[in-house]
Computed example of a mutant assay.
Amino acid sequence: MMKVTEKNIANRETDFLIVGQGLAGTMLAFELHRRGKNFVVVDSPSGEKVSRVAAGIINPVVFRRLTKSWLVDDLFPVLKDTYHELEKLLSCHLLHTLKINKILGKEEGSFWRTKTVENKLEAYIHTEPNTYFSKNGIVAPYGVGKVFNAFRADLPMLIDRFREFLIQEDRFIGKEVDTKDVITENEKVQWKNIAAQKIIFCQGFRASDNPFFQPVKFKHTKGQVLDLNIPDLEITNMVNKGMFVLPLGENRFRAGATYRWEFQDTNPDDEATAELTGKMEKIVKVPYSITGKRAGIRPTTHDRRPVVGLHPDTPEIGIFNGLGSKGAMLAPFFAREFARLLCGESDTIHPEVNLLRYYGKK
């Protein structure tokens, strides 16, 4: 089908106009597609997306305290269903099973055993650490704790394939959206030649500049990863100790990630590279070469929770943002919850992510 342009969408009407086709916009569009809704996605063809940088790691455990990730028992069934449905739609493999070896310190073995039972983690990790772990090139003198129920989502492939799908369906516009062009009247919203019931902003870190959501307390973080070639590193599972080293096959690895709350741009920088290579030297003891450096800005809020919902004074305008470093795990669940609200299947949003928390309302 023909790509949607301003010329061929004159006076077009739709149920929903989604601004942004990163992870949030893609997942929300997919949920609306599953419900047979009419929608259009508009996004800059050259827009920077942290989804293209993120490794897409879905880890059910917070290693620092050895607790479950927030809402993981609810998130996992939805994310498995969603990624598998997307795989069918897009004819590609998106969700890869992942095992994680957490390199333990001298006193961490007993902590691992105790917390696994205390925090009911048996569905995700092995109770007993592997004290005999030995892989050429990896330093783990006190063994590893093993996470057996984790995943890696191929987010760049998801974004690219879903964009192709949108273009084929005549539902994509490659344009920047200036909020000055967004007009609300008669319980509808107008942007250029498109009239919609609602416009949903999924702009990533650019949401900070959106005048419709100024009360939202964004606190974005910059992250950097390295692409590596390590011929002598004999691991097939991810290792983690203050950073991750993820095998991608054929001697290729990805390592990361940094977290910076103060930054000037989205470019990789030497300071972040030095931080990662310094941590690498404590884990990997074989030669490696850096084949690439990538950085992006994670859309994050002050309380590290997503922000989802409709504007309390102008419900024709909504937002789906703030997925942060766990976006691959959070996006499917909250996209489905938001779609249920938008389609009249539900009248609630989880209170910890609800946009109304920034407006003093519940």
Rank of each mutant, 00 (worst) to 15 (best):
I183G: 04
T184R: 07
T184L: 02
T184D: 03
E185V: 07
N186Y: 14
N186D: 15
K188N: 11
K188R: 15
Q190G: 00
Q190R: 13
Q190L: 04
W191F: 14
W191E: 10
W191A: 05
K192M: 12
K192I: 07
N193G: 02
I194C: 11
I194R: 10
I194Q: 14
I194D: 12
A195G: 00
A196Q: 13
Q197S: 15
K198V: 00
I200Q: 07
C202K: 06
C202Q: 09
Q203Y: 01
Q203S: 07
G204I: 14
G204V: 11
F205D: 12
R206N: 13
R206H: 13
R206L: 12
A207W: 00
S208R: 05
D209A: 14
D209S: 14
D209C: 03
P211M: 05
P211Y: 05
F212S: 05
F212A: 01
F212T: 01
F213T: 08
P215A: 12
K217T: 09
K217S: 12
F218P: 03
K219E: 12
H220K: 02
H220L: 03
T221L: 10
T221G: 08
G223F: 04
Q224K: 07
V225C: 12
V225Y: 04
L226A: 14
I230M: 08
I230E: 07
P231R: 05
P231V: 02
P231N: 05
P231E: 06
D232T: 09
D232A: 15
L233D: 12
L233I: 09
E234K: 15
I235E: 09
T236K: 10
T236Y: 03
N237R: 11
N237C: 02
V239Q: 04
N240Q: 08
G242W: 03
G242C: 02
V245W: 01
P247Q: 08
L248Q: 12
G249N: 03
